[in-house]
Nucleic acid binder design. Sequence first.
DNA 1: CGAGATTCATGTGAAGTATACCTTTAGGCTTAA
DNA 2: AAGCCTAAAGGTATACTTCACATGAATCTCGTA
Length: 403
Amino acid sequence: MGDGELRKFFEDYTARDGVFVERKALQTNYLPDSLPHREEQIKQIANILAPSLRRGRPSNLFVYGKTGTGKTHTTNHVVDNLITAAKEGNIPLKNIYVNCKLKRLADTEYRLIAQLIREMGGSIAATGLPTDEVYKTFFEIVDKQKALVLLVLDEIDQLVKKAGDEILYNLVRVNEELKQSQIVLLGISNDLVFVDTLDPRVRSSLSEEEIVFPPYNAFQLQDILRKRSEVAFKSGVVRQGVIEKCAAYAAREHGDARRALELMRVSAELAERGDSDEVKLEHIDQAEEKIERDRVIDVIKSQPKQSQATLYSILLSTKKEKQIISTGEVYNAYKTISSQVGLRPLTQRRISDIISELDMLGIISTKIISKGRYGRTSEISLAIPPPIFDRTEQLLAEGLALS
DNA sequence: CGAGATTCATGTGAAGTATACCTTTAGGCTTAA
DNA sequence: AAGCCTAAAGGTATACTTCACATGAATCTCGTA
């Protein structure tokens, strides 16, 4: 594309009538002013946290519910308001928010605390320090605030699954050591039975209070979508039935509002890109595929080389032979592939772990079965929808060839 | 024929190793008085 | 003499390896009916 053409493209682009007025309103990190159908939970959280405005220490709170039930948004909504109120009343109150699942930022004890320090505006080495040292730095930095610190740990179940519950125990204990500050833990979890797996000491102090977020039903999802759409779109661009269909799709997935909104946004983006000035039903199906593809691609890209090589092995084996393969077969394929790309071959032990990591990421699914006389293995199959096999394969091949 | 014993292929836990990175410390060099 | 830089020493987290043991149902074995 020459310069002239390019400029023309941009001019056309701006001149064209899109469907959006305020695209932001549909993005996942958008915090709307009101959260429909969560009035009850807002009230509860507010009640629990309110003592902080009288300089008291609220109970630790544990929030759980499935993905996309508004846990994060509701909590942040209340916390934000609380902070504002505190500022007006001149009460020292701070909050830290960490998402434990986010891209290897906080998936071990060390990294979580390091991340907390960074959130508090401190800096800390990424590795090398003794963990006690990191805790000490954290204590000091918190204590220096002379404030009540609301520590919001999102997706806390992921963290504990990977790093154990000792971290929580340590954090719960922190208050005893702090002289001038206090912290309050707000744990958010997708896993409903998560608390039961915790050490009893941790459980009792972490979930002094508990709030459950029930999934949205289809009607509530429609409500949410309608509200957001009013802000996001020009009037009349959303075809009859689109909202209903998005809501229905998301309701099918345990009432995931995030998914519903994403579906809506991507549908609209596809409509816009396809030169349509209306969002139609067929865009939704396209959007669903695109979302899944983007998710898979995103995950794959962020994986280390060895995991990519493993996944590639699985992909090739399932394609060549059959749908379901065993660990041994994967390892054989992996050995040839790793030597082809000049990657140091890892042991089967490690590959076994990598396979279960991939399982956790939802890219493959595994099931351990015993075949009696013929041993025990996991049955591995791809959890990627077939339409994006090719793209995935290409991506992996590229990623590996470059090394 | 049926109850145990066996067997296979791998899951899984624990402990050890390599690597990359951190802080501290000691020595050597430079600099300013 | 004081200040600054460098390199070595001593320490840690993480990713991986090594070793060893655990699993669990199809199959085998062998005593018994």
